[in-house]
Amino acid sequence: MEAIDIIEGPVTLLDRSDVDTDQIIPKQFLKRVERTGFGEFLFYDWIRDGEIELEPNPILVSGRNFGSGSSREHAVWALDQFGFQAVVAPSFSDIFFSNCTKNGFLPVALDEEDCQALATAGRGRIDLESQTVSWEGGEASFEIDPEIKRRLLGGLDDIALTLQSEDEITAFESGPGGSYGPVTTALD
């Protein structure tokens, strides 16, 4: 995962709320078994129908409840591979937010007015370290979980980090918790 620090540049506005992952990457493109090749199909139906046009700028601004619906991580891969580096919106679905942070793609929650101001300014600068977004004539700060921030700043691989606690996992498994639940391999 690539480390994030400063994301700066022009802003693309997608002025809609409840943008769901079915729109971000329609299902007909979910049949790939690789992690790449999704960028060109971003918002495929909306773009093909001429409903929206999108510039691959560093920052995407959109409406509330962004990324709702299906858990498909393909949505984040598509946004990232299209050329966006961060998405700024008043709120996000939980799974989408988490998927972003696993891919070095930055979700930033700002209130509605700040989102509008950033979009109007047309250019912005997101500083993850100081948790601020600035644009001509304005600035706002955003919240982010300190652990997630640490991982994003360092570009750290979650699995490698967790495997550093392997002894604790093994200890848990040898306690009562380790044998809770069914044994799937015994079913056949």
């Binding site: 858990s71 498909r72 393909h74 988490s98 998927n99 699995i159 967790t162 392997e166 996992i169 498994e173």
Partner: peptide
């Protein structure tokens, strides 16, 4: 609860998940 593909890989490799308490 539902998870994304990176988390699927995480569970496969570690049988655990990093989660903020909701």
């Amino acid at each position: 609860f539902g998870i994304g593909t990176s988390e699927v890989e995480h569970v496969m490799a570690t049988q655990t998940l990093v989660q903020r308490r909701p």
